[in-house]
Simulated assay, not measured.
Amino acid sequence: MPVDDAALLAHDVRHWAGPRSLPLWLPPEASALVRRDGSAYRAAGGHERTLAETVGRALADEVARGADRPRRSGLTPAEERTVLAALTG
């Protein structure tokens, strides 16, 4: 469900990382981060993964570490339910 920045901020959801944050949600003034060039990484020997591989590896890591573990960053499940309930009426 798309939600605009103002609605999330009104419910004390924060950008990027830390408590009550949404990963990869950036404020407009930080949009240059997504335009970074990967050429230096590739020149140093790095390689890009497919989206499917990236998602698969992230999911495997979550399962291995325990998806229900306490987090230092992000919304807790209860916080997420509260925000979603407020935004969907």
Rank of each mutant, 00 (worst) to 15 (best):
P2E: 08
P2M: 05
V3A: 01
D4G: 05
A6Q: 04
A6I: 02
A6V: 02
A7E: 04
A7H: 05
L8N: 02
A10G: 03
A10D: 12
A10M: 07
A10K: 12
A10L: 07
H11K: 01
H11I: 01
D12W: 01
V13E: 00
R14F: 03
H15K: 06
H15G: 04
W16S: 05
A17F: 13
A17N: 09
P19M: 04
R20W: 04
S21E: 13
L22N: 01
L22I: 04
L22A: 10
L22Q: 01
P23Q: 14
P23C: 14
L24D: 11
L24Y: 09
W25K: 06
W25F: 12
L26T: 03
L26A: 02
P27F: 07
P28D: 09
E29R: 11
A30K: 06
A30P: 00
A30V: 09
S31C: 14
A32E: 11
A32N: 13
L33K: 10
L33R: 15
V34T: 08
D37P: 00
G38S: 09
S39P: 00
S39Y: 04
Y41Q: 08
Y41S: 13
R42N: 12
A44I: 03
A44R: 08
G45V: 02
G46K: 06
G46M: 04
H47R: 12
H47K: 06
H47Q: 15
R49V: 14
L51K: 09
A52L: 11
A52C: 05
E53R: 14
E53W: 06
T54L: 15
V55D: 01
V55Q: 01
G56A: 03
G56C: 05
A60C: 08
A60F: 08
D61K: 15
D61I: 11
E62M: 10
E62L: 07
E62Q: 11
E62A: 05
A64W: 03
R65N: 08
R65S: 08
R65H: 14
G66A: 08
G66P: 06
A67Q: 08
D68G: 12
P70Q: 11
R72G: 12
R72C: 05
R72E: 08
R72L: 08
S73C: 11
S73M: 03
G74R: 00
L75W: 00
T76C: 09
T76V: 11
P77R: 07
P77N: 07
R81W: 09
R81Q: 15
T82Y: 02
T82A: 14
V83A: 01
V83F: 00
A85V: 04
A85S: 15
A86G: 05
A86W: 14
L87D: 00
L87M: 11
L87G: 01
L87A: 01
T88S: 08
